[in-house]
Design a protein around this nucleic acid. Structure first.
Length: 412
RNA sequence: GUGGCUGUAGCUCAAUUGGUUAGAGCAUCAGAUUGUGGUUCUGAGGGUUGCGGGAUCGUUCCCCGUCAGCCACCCCA
């Protein structure tokens, strides 16, 4: 027998209602904030991710699903932002409107070792607002994320916020860290010694206690921020307070991807275990230009859908659907039956029958399992008199209706 | 990529220090006087004990390998 590829999941019929609910809710909230959906291919030129996420990041170095064509190297997208900015520029959205708000829903791929809340194919619900550097936009985006969570019915989450500063600030911080940490490099954990070479900022959020102490001594807070970035950050904080959105500043929150600068944030939930981020995002003021576009700022975030479900706990999606179940007895009735089903469906009435030629008792059981609220019984007796029996399953009552009046009867 | 734990029916789990035909609940299907569901009762089907090797008179149980899953590290949504 064939098996799923490791780290992938089948989303089965008993789970799809929850997915549909989340997606519908997301679309609703995005449109409240005037975001429009964009759908980009799941494969891209691998170099796109190299360029945007950073060539030294683990995602690019180890975690991309690579497809080699004869002359090209494609990658299954590991995240959404790069593709969307690519599409934004390729389709000249920057020229058709000054400011663009986009959202997306779809699968992402990373070749990691699977674990709780970490799959090789997972799903993002995210958005990108491109074309403005306004701090009010940062506030709106975070407010949007928090409203999404509320509408999903998820509580107990925490919004963590920080500012990395502009490119210059980031570089200054990096070189300062490099200088200070290399003196103590032997005291750092193995991972951090690696980070020191590849991405110093990551040392700041190391979980190792020793490293934390060392970092604490360096007392990195927002002191590396230039006046502009500092006031931007202040405005963001002020805006969030204005909207009563609780948040926590963590000056060791850096993000892993190169394109982030200024505002970065993460939303965590304690239900998730070690992969505790259900959403993350931030500002990327150099990304558009990096991809050959104009000097335009942007900000976005993404939710991990599978992680949302973990945060929400067991959720029963009660779908209050209406279903009519037709039971026919005998060959003659069966023929009339398929005509009735067809007629009902043409009239937008949901209906089904059993295709296993069960006994009446068995068919009623099947109707019950299908959660039908109404059953139509068509047997020899009914056929002879040109009627059909309607049985209300919850009331356990039944009545007879003329076949020609059936559709009208069921419409009300 | 590194480390630890686990792998028995569709699902959740049993199987007495290694000892006869590997059990139960749920689920499925069928019946309980010939055309009436949910509750109840009865019965049936369903397992190469993940796969491969080894040690043993003998293994679901011990050893090795492999695959898969879980958890943590790393990384990240």
């Amino acid at each position: 027998m064939f098996k799923r590829v490791p780290g992938t999941k089948d989303i089965l019929p008993n789970e799809t209602p929850s997915w549909q609910r989340i997606e519908t809710e997301a679309r609703k909230v995005f449109s409240l904030y005037n975001y429009q959906e964009i759908r980009t291919p799941i494969i891209e030129d691998a170099a796109l991710f190299n360029r945007t996420l950073g060539a030294t990041t683990e995602i690019v170095q180890k975690q991309m699903f690579i497809i080699h064509n004869q002359e090209d190297t494609y990658a299954l997208r590991p995240e959404g932002t790069a593709s969307i900015v690519r599409s934004y520029l390729e389709n000249s959205l920057d020229k058709t409107s000054g400011f663009t708000k986009l959202y997306y829903i779809g699968p992402m791929f990373r070749l990691e070792r699977p674990q709780k809340g970490r799959l090789r194919q997972f799903h993002h619900i995210g958005c990108e607002a491109i074309g403005s550097q306004d701090a009010a936009l940062d506030v709106e985006v975070i407010a949007l994320a928090s409203q999404l969570l509320e509408n999903f019915g998820i509580t107990g989450y925490k919004i963590i916020l920080n500012s990395l500063g502009c490119l210059k600030d980031k570089q200054a911080l990096s070189s300062e860290l490099e200088k200070n940490l290399s003196e103590k490099s032997k005291e750092l954990c193995c991972d951090c010694q690696e980070r020191l070479k590849k991405n110093v900022l990551r040392v700041l959020d190391c979980k190792n206690e020793k490293c934390r102490l060392i970092v604490k001594e360096l007392s990195v807070n927002q002191s590396h921020l230039c006046p502009d970035c500092l006031s931007h950050f202040e405005e963001v904080k002020k805006g969030l307070k204005l909207l009563n959105i609780p948040f926590e500043i963590q000056d060791h929150l850096v993000r892993g991807l190169d394109y982030y600068n200024r505002t970065v944030f993460e939303i965590t939930h304690s239900n998730l275990g070690s992969q505790d981020a259900i959403a993350a995002g931030g500002r990327y003021n150099n990304l558009v230009r990096e991809l050959g576009g104009p000097e335009l700022g942007g900000i976005g975030f993404a939710f991990g859908v599978e992680r949302l479900f973990l945060a929400a706990g067991e959720r029963v999606a009660n779908s209050q659907k209406k279903l009519i179940y037709l039971i026919t007895l005998g060959e003659a009735a069966k023929e009339t039956g398929i005509k009735i089903l067809n007629q009902l469906r043409k009239n937008n009435i949901a209906c089904d029958t059993d295709y296993l030629s069960k006994s009446l008792k068995g068919a009623l059981r099947a109707a019950n399992d299908a959660a039908a609220n109404l059953v139509l019984i068509l047997g020899d007796d009914e056929l002879k008199n040109n009627i059909i029996t309607l049985k209300d399953m919850s009331q356990s009552t039944q009545k007879e209706v003329k076949l020609e009046d059936l559709v009208e009867e069921l419409k009300c």
